[in-house]
Write a protein that binds this DNA or RNA. Sequence first.
DNA 1: CGATTTTTGGTACATTTGTTCCAGAAAGAA
DNA 2: TTCTTTCTGGAACAAATGTACCAAAAATCG
Lengths: 183, 183
Amino acid sequence: MPPSTAKGEARRSVLLDAVVRVLERGGPGAVTHRAVAAEAGVPLAAATYYFANIDDLLVSALRRATEQQVALFADLADPSLHDVARLLHDWTHANRASAIAQYELLFLAMRRDTLREAADLWYRSLENALGPRHDRRSRVAALAIDGLLLRMLWSGEPSTVAGIEAALRDILDPPAGRVSRPD
Amino acid sequence: MPPSTAKGEARRSVLLDAVVRVLERGGPGAVTHRAVAAEAGVPLAAATYYFANIDDLLVSALRRATEQQVALFADLADPSLHDVARLLHDWTHANRASAIAQYELLFLAMRRDTLREAADLWYRSLENALGPRHDRRSRVAALAIDGLLLRMLWSGEPSTVAGIEAALRDILDPPAGRVSRPD
DNA sequence: CGATTTTTGGTACATTTGTTCCAGAAAGAA
DNA sequence: TTCTTTCTGGAACAAATGTACCAAAAATCG
């Protein structure tokens, strides 16, 4: 039931903002029609009217989050290392709850097929933003940055822009020598 | 309420196995006293008796999963690259549901303080198993392996032991040259 | 043995949930 | 205006959930 009127569109948007807030505060398990309606300050029926079932709520929220994420990364065309570090810092510290919520949605997409498409879009856009090149070296860098994101969300370290920049430098321009034992 | 009798200990263990299965099948949201009791084939009261609340169930399950994970990695003392690749392949493909469940628990620990301790243990043990060394180079490798794990869980790629081994080689012994643009 | 603690299994209750329904208000089209 | 679609708000329902209770069985201890 997509809204046809301008007022309907506005209310749907208000509800989606509420979904994101509920999601950030309590995770996917906290997203219920009632919680979202209360957060948005609208009656329960409004939530069930615009989002027939829970998956509708989650899919729409993931889509909205993806759009915002894509826009955020698109702002940084050809960024310096410092720019990237600042972006990652903001994302994992200032917007930590939002970042966690997005990863939670991604994991949820592993179980719910209805979320799958939206999650694919998210992942591809992040991949493109982080490293449009496709040689082996930059693929490793993308993996390491993924891991770095997780670690920052989890432990909070590195916690400063400078620290993140140093980590990025290690990833992108590693010190010489091999770390592996021969196999 | 820890069990005092041998029979009690056994039943608690049966319940814990059931928790893990429920977790793997439906994620943390599916873990309820009733679901676990049904999965274990015991009455509801047995689940509430041995695990007073839901957090008890989740914490205990994460602890058990951690112990198994530590044991799994401990078996591989001084492994070859091929051994590590095979381990990762088994973990992310043969035991994919289990691996996903563990990550879900880790994310849940970001919100529930009661899970925090168990999650810390899990993370540290994985870190130690992957790379006991602590120079900058191996820290980057650990991050990249983390990211590789996520990617394998998410997309299934790389899907073969050989593919994983190649990725590990790229990570641990990267081709020369820098990937970053100057900042 | 008896006494005491632990475990069992069944039941019950208050909450919360997803979902449905419907009568009326609001908005848009004719 | 009238007519039709869209939206609103309130209510209700069955199902599932966390939690508590209790009497009886089983195990442990003296």
